[in-house]
Amino acid sequence: MTTAGDGPWLDDAAGRLVRPYTISNGRTRPTAALDLLSQVRATGSTPLGPLGPEHAQALGLCRSAVPVAEVAAHLRLPAAVTKVLLSDLVDCGALTTKPPAHHHNPTDRSLLEAVLDGLRRQL
């Protein structure tokens, strides 16, 4: 187990020792309209006010446009918590958001084929 000064509070057997709802201050709904395929990107503006370490990590991941699902995976947080963190950054002007190109029809065949191709390349 690591100590507070060594990095994130993780226990090899138990995982993260800080519960997700404490990271989002108990909030469960984001203020910005985000779904898992929404693209978020850093604006370069410095956020006003204090932000938690997870906010800083998320902002660092968004130097280029990245989907919300990918940010959640890198942060190892539930998508709902990640959406709240990202919406905080959108609200303070540190991130911009763009709906996915296929947001009108998420079952579009070309989208599903692109996802399948991407998954095959990863394997």
Rank of each mutant, 00 (worst) to 15 (best):
L59D: 15
L59H: 11
L59V: 14
L59Y: 15
G60T: 14
G60M: 14
L61H: 15
L61G: 15
C62Y: 15
C62E: 10
S64Y: 00
A65M: 02
V66D: 01
V66Y: 01
V66A: 00
P67S: 04
P67W: 02
P67F: 01
P67C: 03
V68P: 07
V68S: 04
A69W: 11
A69I: 13
A69D: 12
E70G: 07
V71L: 11
V71W: 08
V71K: 13
A73P: 07
A73R: 11
A73Y: 12
H74F: 15
L75D: 12
L75F: 10
L75Y: 08
R76N: 07
L77C: 02
L77M: 09
L77W: 09
P78W: 02
P78Q: 03
A79C: 09
A79M: 10
A80I: 07
A80L: 03
V81C: 03
V81Q: 00
V81K: 00
T82M: 08
T82H: 05
T82F: 06
K83N: 10
K83P: 04
V84R: 05
V84D: 01
V84C: 03
V84I: 01
L85M: 10
L86R: 12
S87W: 14
S87Y: 13
D88F: 14
D88C: 13
L89G: 13
V90L: 11
V90R: 12
D91V: 12
C92E: 11
G93P: 03
A94R: 04
A94G: 05
L95C: 09
L95G: 07
T96D: 05
T96L: 02
T97L: 11
T97S: 11
T97N: 05
T97P: 03
T97I: 12
K98F: 05
K98T: 08
P99E: 00
P99G: 00
P99N: 01
P100R: 12
P100N: 13
A101Q: 08
A101H: 12
A101V: 09
H102E: 10
H102P: 09
H103I: 11
H103G: 06
H103P: 05
H103F: 03
H103W: 07
H104V: 02
H104C: 00
H104E: 01
H104I: 02
N105G: 00
P106N: 05
P106V: 01
P106H: 02
T107P: 04
T107Q: 09
D108L: 14
D108H: 15
R109Y: 03
R109M: 01
R109H: 06
S110V: 03
S110M: 05
S110H: 05
L111D: 06
L111V: 01
L111R: 07
L111H: 10
L111P: 07
L112R: 15
L112P: 09
E113A: 15
E113M: 14
A114K: 06
A114Q: 10
A114R: 11
V115A: 06
V115N: 04
